[in-house]
Amino acid sequence: MFDNTFLNAQHVAVLEHWDRRGFRSRANLLATIVDQLPETAELAKQKTLLRALLAKADGLDQADTLLGPTGESNVLYLAGRGDTLVYGSETTSPLAILGLVVAALMTGNAVILHAPYHADWAEQVCRLLYQVGVPSNILTLSQDDSLEQLLATQTLKLMCAACGVLETIDLGRQLAAREGVLVPLVTEIDSVQCSHLLQPDFLWRFVTEKTRTINTTAVGGNASLLALGSASI
């Protein structure tokens, strides 16, 4: 079961390293699969989708320096949420599943992929991702466990689903029944055009925000303020 895997220190360390790599670096890595994707009828769309998603990396990498009182630095930046279950239902296409997997990986998460109705395709994609350097601790293909079992994964932080509207209701109920962390559900219900995945702020749902405030005066930061007081203007 994934609990054992995900609770172990090695997984934690690999996930931290993956998260710290940065969005652009992960996007560059993931971009190398675009031209190697398995042949399907929607290959062109898949390539367009991945390119569009990976192009957002720079924006996500950009830490916001926030205006505030002097003597402090305040920065808002983004990080992956952690262990993410990506589920592809029977009714959906590989296109939406691929989009969610790549989005989740690019945003610094570890992915458990469960797409039993697209088993062969999922296996090919995972193999490809491993080949280009996605660590095996970061991407796990899980076709044998049931969705219920996977939803019980203790360390789960995010659930992504490519499915129909009615399934989202059921998934929402199952997630809400869990104890512990509230696991957000991110869905792509448009398996043909992936119209949600392409929206400008959709990837923000895959990440968590971190604010870092430093009292810079404790490490010499007041020197620049003092210089301002002597400015010749």
Partner: peptide
């Protein structure tokens, strides 16, 4: 794994 970190304050 926290949302807000405050350093030296």
């Amino acid at each position: 794994k926290v949302g807000n970190t405050y350093i030296n304050r």
